[in-house]
Write a protein that binds this DNA or RNA. Structure first.
Length: 811
RNA sequence: GCGCGAGUGGCGGAAUCGGCAGACGCACAGGACUUAAAAUCCUGGGUCAGCAAUGGCGUGCGGGUUCAAUUCCCGCCUCGCGCACCA
């Protein structure tokens, strides 16, 4: 039974048309303004596209289609972040090569995307697993290596002796391997690390250059975690050497009553007195056995042990006992602190436990009851040398900090210092399915491959089982491992680590600009034309890592002249999570997963696209409702019937006669609202306005082409298939995508009659209809009349008149 | 604990340079068409009282500013996200 609007036929027809005519190709045409509209490319998992992906993809598709019609040269590409763990795990289990699994998954994703009618320029498709792509990932690594930004370090990994393999964090559940539930221990291994900390300052500063969600900027700032303070040396009292600490509160130096070293601190053996050796040794051992998780438990009581040693406070010469405690981390600052219990909550808690003295040096709190940590209140006290050579007393903390820092610097016992929470980036995985490092080893030294030797291909194998040594499966491939040093020709062994999944996704946006270039990562002229990305849409789960790593690489490429902009992504938006109909997170175990293919079978791609956008604001988390999809389907069908008969021909209601002034006003209001809403990514309200238009037109018996034709164009970015079909039925050549976007006439939007509310004491008591240009007197007179019984003949104390908005009488 | 964001009908949401709260959609109810149903079209609807006209109350809670507050300010509560001993 064929009803009027047959989405199966229409969608197949226009997808075939787009396939053949390729109207969505981005041209390298510098005469046109460009718009680079990018989705975060997906990992092609085995379960295919889900409705959450579709939300972001539909949003960027609407913007891309809109911008093309506005005359922009639009770059809207798609690719695959296809290295990664699941395909390798599957290979270990079944022996099926990851490349095969990946290719199948990509085919599924691509079929689904085409079915949604997403207007990607498929000629620019890329996969991070393609040697033509990862050649340049390796090339970037070589540049990092040459600039000293890649180094080797012994870093602990999650080693599972029973499985003979290193596990990713997500493969560990409650400290045991996800597979089999075996013990996991921390084992140091030689790893590549990237020196992202060298860029910490710029990564922080340049956040000012981008238009990103406030929450994401905040997360990046916190992640980088810059803090300004001072490094201060405390000489050991009974041995050579000094404990260097980092503090943000040098103004509280006189309040230090003890010191703490991290258990791993190299000076522990030096300061520990003979009597304390056993206790300290036991504490260190216990700390080493604790997992990160245990050490991070906050509620627990702080623990520590006295070393028996002392250090000298450089400001007043006091002997401070040196303790060991695991609340001080070796990985931050210098791994040692001066403890000021009066003005630091952690030190306060520790001091209470071990009955250490608490000395107030900032007045304004009750330091025996709680640490007083405010820096914007209080006055420095008890902070002077007896001989009067130094006094901070009476200063505000903000004044005392630079004063004491300068004093320390003068004496050579301290200096201003900046510290970051950001750590260098562990850039190695003990896996097969990733980019091999363009590095060989000879005599224990790493040597880079020559750029001409790239790509270093991932060797073929059928054995994806771990090597058993902790090295990646590549360590099993003797023939591949044995190579020569490119410089000397002497025998060498290849690096067996592979790069993490973040590597390929760090720079893919650049390759889309010039995906087939054999000689360069990207052509400089094309790069200057297309960069930066104007709109980048993807999940907020990437708010920190992907976006920070990507910015880091971009800045390195900027420094070596490969790219022309300091930041890659100008505007960033995160689409919200789509929940199941039950308002719960979609998951197989809950059985509330919505499959886009099922939805498209039932309602068609246009309806699904429209519903994805109509659900609510793009960035909000919101539940799926299949009833809601039915609702937008009804809208599409009503729109269809505005101009098409049961038999599929042009309806007799469609006329060439001009439209009424009111109808024109509605059209122009709709053009304005839809245009502005697309610019602001408020797709839900744009659709609501189109529904208003269709509802009004449904009531009209005669529907002017002059109304319908622009409306079909407005609809086309949202529901491109039905719009193409309607455009054809209206007698036009394809394609709507080549039509200019309708322009509204401001004069036609304003009405000559207005209804304005009349209030008495701020409460609505009536409404009046007036001419838009009516004088204040006229309006007030009419208003007074309509609320006469509320005024009871009296004269209002005050009359508020807001032109074209309201009248309010105060009595 | 700290940081960020959000709380509006039965449901998704709209309206925030302060100015008619609830657009649009879902669900619901009534009507038209139909032998009947579906589909479609029309109508209704925050809530309380009232036959109705109409009025009281109403945007998480409590205060405040204002002629006027969903919108601004202060103090709470709840939910979501992120960070979590970072000296």
């Amino acid at each position: 039974m064929a009803k009027g609007y047959d989405h199966h036929a229409i969608e197949a027809k226009w997808q075939a048309y787009w396939e053949e005519h390729r109207p969505f190709r981005a041209m390298n045409d510098p005469s046109k303004p460009k718009f680079y509209c990018l989705d975060m490319f997906p990992y092609p998992s085995g379960s295919g596209l889900h409705v959450g992906h579709l939300e972001g993809y539909t949003a960027t598709d609407i913007v891309s289609r809109y911008k093309r019609m506005k005359g922009f040269n639009v770059l809207h590409p798609m690719g695959w972040d296809a290295f990664g763990l699941p395909a390798e795990q599957y290979a270990v289990k079944t022996g099926v090569h990851p490349a095969l699994t990946t290719a199948q998954n990509i085919a599924t994703f691509k079929r689904q995307m085409k079915r949604v009618g997403l207007s990607y320029d498929w000629e620019r498709e890329l996969s991070t697993t393609d040697p033509g792509y990862y050649r340049w990932t390796q090339w970037i690594f070589l540049q990092l290596y040459k600039r000293g930004l890649a180094y080797v370090a012994e870093v602990p990994v999650n080693w599972c002796p029973a499985l003979g393999t290193v596990l990713a964090n997500e493969e560990i559940v409650d400290g045991k391997s996800e597979v089999g539930g075996f013990d996991v221990i921390r084992k140091p291994m030689r790893q590549w690390v990237l020196k992202i900390t060298a860029y910490a300052d710029r990564l922080l500063e340049d956040l000012k250059l981008v238009e990103w969600p406030a929450s994401t900027l905040e997360m990046q700032k916190n992640w980088i975690g810059r803090s300004i303070g001072a490094e201060v040396d405390f000489a050991l009292a009974d041995a050579k050497g000094a404990i260097r600490v980092f503090t943000t509160r040098p103004d509280t130096l006189f309040g230090a009553t003890y010191m703490v070293l991290a258990p791993e601190h190299p000076l522990v053996d030096v300061v520990t007195g003979a009597a304390q050796k056993a206790a300290v040794g036991a504490y260190r051992e216990a700390a080493a056995r604790k997992s990160d998780l245990q050490r991070q438990e906050l509620d627990k009581e702080k623990t520590g042990v006295f070393t028996g040693g002392y250090a000298i406070n450089p400001v007043n010469g006091e002997r401070l006992p040196v303790w060991l405690a695991d609340y001080v981390l070796m990985s931050y600052g210098t791994g040692a602190i001066m403890a000021v219990p009066a003005h630091d909550e952690r030190d306060w808690a520790f001091a209470k436990t071990y009955r250490l003295p608490i000395r107030e040096v900032i007045e304004g709190g009750h330091v025996q009851e709680a640490a007083f940590v405010a820096t914007d209140r209080g006055t420095v006290v008890n902070s002077a040398m007896p001989d009067g050579s130094l006094s901070l007393n009476g200063m505000k903390p903000a004044e005392a900090i630079p004063a004491i820092t300068a004093w320390l610097e003068q004496r050579g016992t301290g200096k201003k210092a900046i510290n970051y929470k950001l750590r260098d980036w562990l850039f190695a995985r003990q896996r097969y399915w990733g980019e091999p490092f363009p590095i060989v080893w000879r005599d224990g030294e790493s040597r880079p491959l020559l750029e001409e030797q790239l790509p270093l291909l991932l060797p073929e194998t059928s054995n994806f089982k771990p090597s058993g040594s902790g090295e990646s499966p590549l360590a099993n491939l003797e023939e591949w491992l044995a190579t020569t040093d490119p410089e000397t020709g002497k025998p060498a062994r290849r690096e067996t680590n592979t790069m993490p999944q973040w590597a390929g996704s760090c720079w893919y946006y650049l390759r889309f600009i010039d995906p087939k270039n054999q000689a360069q990562l990207v052509d400089p002229a094309m790069e200057r034309y297309w960069m930066p990305v104007d709109l980048y849409v993807g999940g907020s789960e990437h708010a920190v890592l992907h976006l920070l790593y990507s910015r880091f690489w971009h800045k390195v490429l900027y420094d070596i002249g490969v790219v022309s902009t300091p930041e890659p992504f100008k505007k960033l938006v995160h689409q919200g999570i789509v929940l199941g109909e039950d308002n719960q997170k979609m998951s197989k175990s809950r059985g509330n997963v919505v499959n886009p293919d099922d939805m498209m079978d039932q309602f068609g791609a246009d309806a699904v696209r429209l519903y994805e956008m109509f659900m609510g604001p793009l960035e909000a988390m919101k539940p799926w409702s299949t009833r809601g999809v039915e609702g937008v389907t009804r809208f599409l069908e009503r729109t269809w019937r505005l101009m098409v008969t049961e038999e599929g021909g042009l309806s007799a209601a469609v006329v060439s006669a001009p439209a009424s002034l009111e109808q024109q006003r509605l059209l122009h209001q709709t053009i304005k609202k839809v245009s502005e809403d697309i610019e602001e990514l408020r797709f839900n309200t744009a659709i609501a306005q189109m529904m208003v238009f269709t509802n009004e037109m449904t009531k009209a018996e005669q529907r002017s082409r002059a109304l319908l034709e622009p409306f079909v164009l407005l609809l086309s970015p949202f529901a491109p298939h039905v719009a193409e079909e309607l455009w054809a039925i209206l007698g036009h050549e394809p394609s709507v995508s080549r039509q200019p976007w309708p322009v509204f006439d401001p004069a036609l939007i304003v009405s000559d009659r207005l209804t304005i509310p009349v209030q008495v004491n701020g409460k609505l008591r009536g409404k009046i209809e007036i001419a838009a240009d009516a004088a204040r007197d006229t309006v007030e007179r009419a208003a007074r009349e309509i609320v006469a019984e509320w005024l009871q003949g009296g004269e209002p104390k005050k009359t508020i008149y807001v032109e074209k908005k309201l009248v309010n009488f105060v009595i």
